[in-house]
Design a protein around this nucleic acid. Structure first.
Length: 159
DNA sequence: GCCAACGTTGGC
DNA sequence: GCCAACGTTGGC
């Protein structure tokens, strides 16, 4: 099993939107970066765990909850939708360009692990999302990092 | 809202 | 294939 961080702007799709989704499940669509696409298409597998990250948040930017992959890669439906901002004229049903997975809500963390806490943490500061200028919206997370994040989000105290 | 960093596009 | 111009991301 692998672990991931999925980024989303809460004004576009937040963890609360996920909670309210039918079956608390959503298609993760709109990824339009080749490196992130390759992760979705080739490496994100069913039952992988996904840390839900709010970027560009009005409130707190950081890791806010946990989800599970419930459907592996399939063509991102939004690329075929002419009304979508994610419409991709170069894609066809035979030759899709972009991929999606489905994720299902597991939990909202009692404590958000903020970006500043991540950057100030001696171990978590190695995470890709903590790197300066990093824009990748799908990033892999090592198991030990994942476990550490889960521990830290249980802890109400500052650390 | 600013702006640094990055990815993509397109002319050559 | 190079690289300048452009558009987007995302922390602050």
């Amino acid at each position: 099993m692998k672990y991931w961080i999925f980024k989303s702007e809460p004004s576009v799709f937040s963890i609360d939107n996920l909670v309210k989704s039918p079956n608390q499940t959503t298609v993760w669509d709109g990824v339009r970066n080749y490196q992130a696409r390759n992760f979705l298409r080739d490496e994100v597998k069913i039952n992988d765990l996904v840390l839900f990250y709010h970027s560009n948040a009005d409130a707190e930017t950081g890791i806010v909850g946990l989800a599970r992959v419930v459907k592996e890669a399939y063509p991102d439906p939004s690329q075929f939708d002419t009304k979508s901002k994610y419409f991709e004229p170069k894609a066809s049903l035979n030759k899709p360009i972009w991929y999606s997975v489905d994720i299902q809500f597991i939990e909202k963390f009692r404590k958000i692990l903020t970006i500043s806490e991540i950057k100030n943490h001696p171990i978590l500061s190695n995470l890709l999302i903590a790197r300066r200028g990093n824009r990748l919206s799908i990033t892999p997370v090592a198991e030990e990092h994942f476990k550490l994040i889960i521990e830290l989000t249980k802890n109400i105290e500052t650390f």
